[in-house]
């Protein structure tokens, strides 16, 4: 990147971070409250009755999944709401008239989504420390998986925003696709509890790979082979990045 392009990238990133920190009560506070409730209800109240899961207490087992769930939903939500908001207010035109290459626009917004995803991830991790003694089995795995997952769902949010024409369109995917896939992705249970058929069905859910890879980073246990998890995340990142660039280059949803 030359310096002008680097400045443009930083400008988009700073603008995005400024946006979600300005409205912190809508972006940073809700996941903190929601996850606290999850820890209290599932971890503290119901967890002891469930007993161990994957060799760990139920609280320890669900913490990685809940951190990942917040990272996934927030990185997605940041990009979809911000980029669609720009389209809705036509302020996207500020970017389109400027000499900012499309890949910088995409990286800038993805950067914003990653920043919010990681910020929420850190907040939820900090809250989890009140409920359990968090141990890290592998720092590189934790950092790389959470980062790549945030990138992947930021790209997903971007594609959703490009196609969205009204505010309803930005809530359909999170409500009807993202949330079910996350809940069924092994946040609250190990897929080994499922019958073999449903275990195999679960394997087509990409979120299962991310949650299990992250759980491996923290606890050292996973239902999924770590290499397969990285492969799956990388494959999706490459596919969604290429598709996003194609949409931007064609001007879908942003140029007439």
């Amino acid at each position: 990147m030359n310096s002008a392009i680097m400045i443009a990238f930083q400008t988009i990133l700073i603008k995005e971070v400024r946006r979600f920190t300005r409205i912190w009560s809508q972006t940073l506070l809700p996941p903190a409250i929601t996850m606290t409730l999850y820890f209290v209800i599932f971890g503290n109240l119901i967890g002891p009755r469930i007993g161990e899961m994957g060799g760990y207490s139920y609280m320890d087992f669900i913490v990685p999944g809940l951190i990942m769930m917040s990272v996934i939903t927030n990185s997605y939500a940041n990009v979809v709401s911000s980029f669609f908001g720009m389209k809705f207010q036509h302020s996207i035109e500020e970017l389109l008239v400027a000499p900012v290459p499309n890949y910088v626009i995409l990286l800038g917004y993805v950067g914003g989504g990653v920043a919010r995803g990681l910020a929420v991830g850190v907040i939820v991790t900090a809250i989890s420390l009140y409920f359990t003694d968090l141990q890290i089995h592998s720092v590189p795995v934790v950092v790389s998986v959470v980062f790549m997952t945030a990138v992947l769902f930021s790209l997903g949010g971007f594609i959703n925003a490009v196609y969205a024409n009204k505010f309803d369109d930005i809530s359909i995917v999170p409500t009807f696709i993202l949330t079910p896939l996350t809940y069924l992705g092994g946040v609250f249970y190990s897929i080994t509890l499922l019958p073999e058929f449903w275990q195999n069905v679960s394997l087509i859910n990409p979120i299962l790979y991310m949650i299990n890879a992250f759980r491996y980073g923290l606890l050292g246990v996973s239902d999924i082979n770590l290499g397969a998890a990285y492969g799956m995340i990388l494959l999706f990142i490459v596919a969604l990045f290429s598709f996003s660039m194609r949409l931007l280059n064609k001007g879908v949803g942003i140029r007439t």
Binding site: S3, A4, I5, I7, A8, Q10, T11, I12, I14, K15, R18, R22, G85, M86, Q89, H90, S91, E93, E94, L95, A98, P99, V100
Partner: peptide, 24 residues
Amino acid sequence: PQEFNFNQFEKVFDILVTQAGYYG
């Protein structure tokens, strides 16, 4: 442009600085 096309929730100064940043 003909229509207002800036982010209505941004501060006036930030809108200009951001736009300049887009131009490197």
